Computed example of a mutant assay.
Amino acid sequence: MADSTAPRKFRRVLLKLSGEALREPGSQENISPPIVEDMAAQIKAAHQTGLEIALVVGGGNFWRGITASNKGMERATADYMGMLATVMNSLAVQSMLEAMDVPTRVQSAIKMDNVAEPFVRRKAMRHLELGRVVIFAAGTGNPFFSTDTTAALRASEINAEIVLKATKVDGIYDSDPNKNPNAVKFDRVSFHECLTRQLKVMDSTAFSLCMENNMPIGVFSMNEPDNIRRALVGEHIGTMVDAKG
């Protein structure tokens, strides 16, 4: 019988990081170099195992389009500004990874040749095959879509085996653990049960993309030391969402 606690063996993964995670709590700085350095070190450790890694980084430490639109800004313009924020974060992560001798490419959904390659699916896959970490920036290139949706879309496009979503909580619960001390955490749950229970895993568009393409989602806390590396190398942390549950 297979050991259910043994690490899963991934070949290619997509890691989704929130922009807020790059900012030190309580700090006025939008990007904390020590935090980015720690993330990069964990990604490097996983990369050295031969794992092919793609990243999507949010932009919430600089800008949230939907928040600005709720305050009167035209939504499409606000979302484009948010996409530019993800480019800044992607460049910060790239810089730190390359300082650690990890070959990296940033591909942007909005053309900006001086700072990033344009997104080309086959080129991204070739970079991964050659051992380069690929960072997908500027969202999908379209307003009204979140970086969760970007992660689900890009993961499907590059034939990743899983989307790993780093969050503030250590998995998916049957209710909000911040409000309900008796909330129960799932180790594994199906797409169908997430829909039935109305569990908040990703936004509805991103979740639908993953479900329709049978793309598993791993949700874990990035606040615990070394958790990014552990998730990347397939250790059983957080919650796994897939077709079987």
Rank of each mutant, 00 (worst) to 15 (best):
D3G: 08
T5R: 03
A6Y: 13
A6D: 12
A6G: 11
K9V: 05
K9P: 00
K9H: 13
R12V: 06
V13S: 07
L14S: 09
L14P: 13
L14G: 00
L15K: 09
K16T: 05
K16H: 07
S18I: 05
S18N: 14
G19E: 12
A21D: 12
L22V: 05
R23K: 13
P25K: 03
N30L: 09
S32Q: 03
S32I: 06
P33N: 03
P33T: 06
I35C: 00
E37Q: 13
D38G: 11
M39S: 08
Q42R: 15
Q42W: 15
Q42S: 11
I43Q: 09
K44P: 03
H47P: 07
I53D: 06
A54G: 08
V56M: 03
V56H: 15
V57Q: 13
G58Q: 11
G60F: 07
G65A: 02
A68R: 13
S69A: 15
K71P: 13
R75D: 00
A78P: 02
D79I: 04
D79E: 15
D79N: 12
G82L: 02
L84D: 12
A85Y: 07
N89W: 10
S90D: 08
L91E: 13
V93M: 12
A99I: 06
D101V: 01
V102T: 15
V102D: 13
T104W: 09
V106H: 14
S108A: 09
S108I: 06
M112H: 06
V115W: 15
F119T: 15
V120N: 09
K123H: 13
M125H: 01
R126C: 09
H127I: 03
E129M: 06
E129Q: 12
E129V: 04
L130A: 07
V134H: 14
I135G: 09
A137E: 10
A138I: 02
A138D: 04
G139F: 00
N142D: 12
F144I: 00
F144C: 08
S146A: 00
T150F: 07
A151F: 04
L153A: 12
L153Q: 11
R154A: 05
R154P: 09
A155K: 02
A155P: 14
A155H: 11
I158T: 04
I158L: 11
N159V: 00
N159Y: 11
A160N: 04
A160L: 04
V163W: 03
V163H: 01
L164T: 10
G171C: 02
I172C: 00
S175I: 06
D176A: 01
A183N: 06
K185A: 04
K185T: 08
F191A: 02
L195Q: 12
T196A: 10
R197H: 06
Q198P: 10
M202N: 10
D203Y: 07
S204K: 04
S208R: 14
L209Y: 05
C210L: 07
M211W: 08
E212M: 11
E212C: 11
N213Y: 05
N214W: 04
N214L: 10
M215L: 14
G218H: 01
G218V: 08
N223F: 15
N223K: 12
D226W: 14
D226V: 06
D226K: 14
N227P: 02
I228G: 02
R229A: 06
R229V: 07
V233D: 07
G245P: 03
